[in-house]
Amino acid sequence: MRSVTVKQLADACGLTVYSGQEYLDKRLIKTDDISRPGLELTGYFDYYPAERVQLFGMTEISFSQRLTSENQLKVMRQLCTDETPCLVVSRSLPVPESMATAAAEKNIPILGTKSSTSRIASRITYYLQGQLAERQSLHGVLVDIYGLGVLITGDSGVGKSETALDLIKRGHRLIADDRVEVYKKDEFTVYGEPPKILAHLLEIRGVGIIDVMNLYGAGAVRTHAHISLIVHLENWSKDKQFDRLGSGEEEQELLGIKIPKITIPVKVGRNMAIIVEAAAMNYRAKTMGYDATKTFDENLNNLIKENSTQNK
């Protein structure tokens, strides 16, 4: 099971450490769900999700202040379990003494932020979803083409990295080369990013490994992208029929989500970068309601009708 330390969460979300600094690397977060312990403050703990980050906003803090000191400490001690990774207080609200005492007893860090409760909840959830999501490592190259995440796949040596280099020179951005870490943000979207050891790097046979950010600037790379299209490069074969009109729609499943796929034949003399770029632009046009294949079909049908009329 994947996990994130409280220190990683604090650094990524800009949280201030109020107490428990020495336990930041020891407390692990294993779920992207967040708990706002409103019912628990009333004493109802039957379904308390102790393993979640516990977020306290104005509602929770103000309600806890209405409790007697004895009840307040009792509830806070029930909130602070061995499973609880950390407590987060929003809006720069003061930390109740009972919370500080109970957290110290269980070695639980208390973090704070000046952000609103809703905003910090969204920020924490977004970060945890990306870090804790189910992941899959794929062989391929991920490139940002006009804001569209295009995953280029194909057999080793077919020219994926060389195509990516040409695309970078045309102003597009590299996300990952050779290995792409794919993860699911939600039930509709799949994202890709490079392994840390390969970030910004591109391998070109005969040249070796090049640092794209160093050679082409920070604008030539991205850290991650939503995968919208898969372009599969395949060596040209006379025995195989490739789609010529674009009417055949392929899909490939990544982590249970179907992604549109285009298979492009590779042959000496074909400029693959321009072809992949055109494929991405054509796909975007389709998502915006324009389909060149349908236009061709309509033109063809109109021509047939005209010829039929003239021959009568």
Rank of each mutant, 00 (worst) to 15 (best):
F188S: 12
A176T: 03
Y47I: 13
R173C: 15
I304F: 15
Y146R: 04
I275R: 02
K286E: 06
N302C: 04
Q252K: 14
V221P: 02
F296R: 13
T295A: 15
E249K: 15
T59L: 10
F242H: 07
S69L: 14
I257F: 12
L9T: 03
K305M: 12
S116P: 09
D11M: 07
I175M: 00
A164T: 01
L128D: 02
E253R: 11
L303M: 14
N282Q: 08
L165H: 06
S3T: 15
T59F: 05
K185F: 03
I197M: 14
G289W: 14
L233V: 07
P85C: 04
T287R: 13
N235V: 05
S308H: 14
K169Y: 04
S19N: 13
S116D: 07
V17H: 04
I34A: 06
A164S: 06
S115R: 11
K286V: 02
A279W: 03
D297S: 08
D166T: 01
G159R: 12
E162H: 06
I34R: 06
K286A: 01
L151G: 05
L93P: 11
F56L: 15
T153A: 02
L167R: 07
I257H: 07
C80D: 04
L39N: 04
T68R: 11
E22N: 12
R66E: 13
T84N: 01
D291A: 08
P96G: 04
R123A: 05
T84M: 07
R135Y: 04
Q65G: 09
L24E: 09
K312T: 08
I210L: 13
I210Y: 01
L55W: 03
R119N: 01
K169D: 06
P265W: 00
G157E: 09
V158S: 10
P109W: 07
I168Y: 01
L151E: 04
N282F: 09
G57D: 05
P94L: 14
S98Y: 06
D243A: 10
Q21L: 10
S92A: 15
P37M: 00
A102S: 11
L174K: 09
D239E: 15
N107P: 04
V141H: 00
L15E: 05
V182T: 01
D11S: 06
A103H: 13
V266T: 13
K286P: 00
E277Y: 12
I168W: 02
G256M: 14
G219W: 06
A133V: 05
T223S: 14
V88W: 04
K238V: 11
I168T: 02
T5E: 12
G38W: 12
I108G: 04
G219C: 11
E251W: 09
M76Y: 13
N307C: 03
P109F: 13
K106D: 11
D144R: 02
D186E: 06
V89P: 03
D291E: 06
H172Q: 05
A199E: 11
S69A: 15
K261P: 00
K258Y: 02
H139C: 03
V221H: 09
S156F: 08
I175R: 01
L151W: 03
G246E: 10
L148Q: 07
H200R: 15
T293K: 07
S161G: 05
D186S: 11
E277G: 03
D166K: 10
A50Q: 14
D178P: 09
T153L: 02
